[in-house]
Amino acid sequence: MRRPALLLTAVFGLSLVACERQQPSTSPQQPQSPSSPQDLAYCAKLTELYQRYVGPDPNSANMAGVRPDVQGGEAVAKCREGDARASIPTLERLLKDADITLPPRA
């Protein structure tokens, strides 16, 4: 019964390690333009497909024994934060790799 909690703890720990390993950019960052409503809607569709068919929801009770996909989880999180431009390419690639047909883009 404690397995899901242990798995979530491990996933959280790995995500922290990944964040710490990222090197700071030496060039000044360009300001990002906000994602369009169309991009956000498309990103939400990709997220739904990804979670349904490729990457399980980490809050699900069915997570026991499933190895999480860090790239997919990060893309889903960025999409939910409103950064569709950063997450769409990753979600599209993961869905294509799983032979999932991509939804039409508005």
Rank of each mutant, 00 (worst) to 15 (best):
Q22W: 05
V17W: 15
R67W: 11
T26M: 08
Q23P: 03
G73K: 00
T26W: 13
A41I: 04
A61K: 01
P68Y: 09
V11D: 06
D39Y: 05
P28G: 01
E74G: 07
G13Y: 06
T90D: 00
D39A: 15
G65M: 11
L8K: 15
P34W: 02
P4N: 05
D57I: 04
A64Y: 09
R2T: 14
P68W: 06
S36P: 13
G82V: 12
P24W: 03
L8F: 03
R21E: 07
Y42D: 14
N59M: 10
Q38W: 11
G13V: 07
G13P: 05
P56H: 06
G13I: 10
T101C: 01
C19D: 09
R85I: 08
V70Y: 15
C19M: 07
Q32L: 11
F12W: 12
L14W: 06
I100R: 08
Q38E: 15
L91E: 09
C79D: 13
K78M: 12
L16M: 13
L94D: 01
R52F: 01
A75R: 01
S35C: 01
A10E: 09
G73C: 03
L8D: 07
V70S: 09
S33H: 05
M63D: 10
Q51G: 03
G65H: 01
R85N: 06
V17Q: 07
P58Y: 10
E20V: 03
S36E: 13
D99Y: 10
P4C: 04
P34R: 14
G73H: 06
G55F: 00
S60Q: 10
S25I: 00
Q32N: 07
S27H: 08
A98N: 10
Q22H: 02
T47M: 07
P58Q: 01
C43G: 04
P103A: 07
V11F: 04
R80A: 13
P31A: 07
T9P: 01
P31G: 01
P31E: 04
S27C: 03
K45P: 09
L7E: 12
T101R: 13
L91F: 14
P56V: 07
L16S: 02
M1N: 02
L102T: 03
I88S: 04
A84S: 14
T47W: 02
S33F: 02
L102V: 01
S27F: 05
R3V: 04
E48W: 04
V17I: 14
G82C: 01
L6G: 07
P56N: 05
Q22L: 08
D99V: 03
A86D: 14
I88K: 00
P58V: 06
G65N: 07
P89N: 13
N62W: 15
E48V: 03
Q23F: 00
L16K: 11
D69G: 12
G65I: 05
R105I: 04
E20N: 05
R80V: 10
K78N: 15
V76Y: 00
E20Y: 10
A98D: 09
Q71T: 02
E74Y: 15
S35R: 05
V76C: 11
F12H: 10
S25M: 10
R105W: 13
M63W: 09
D99F: 06
K96M: 14
A84C: 09
E20M: 02
P34H: 05
K45G: 00
A77F: 10
A98R: 02
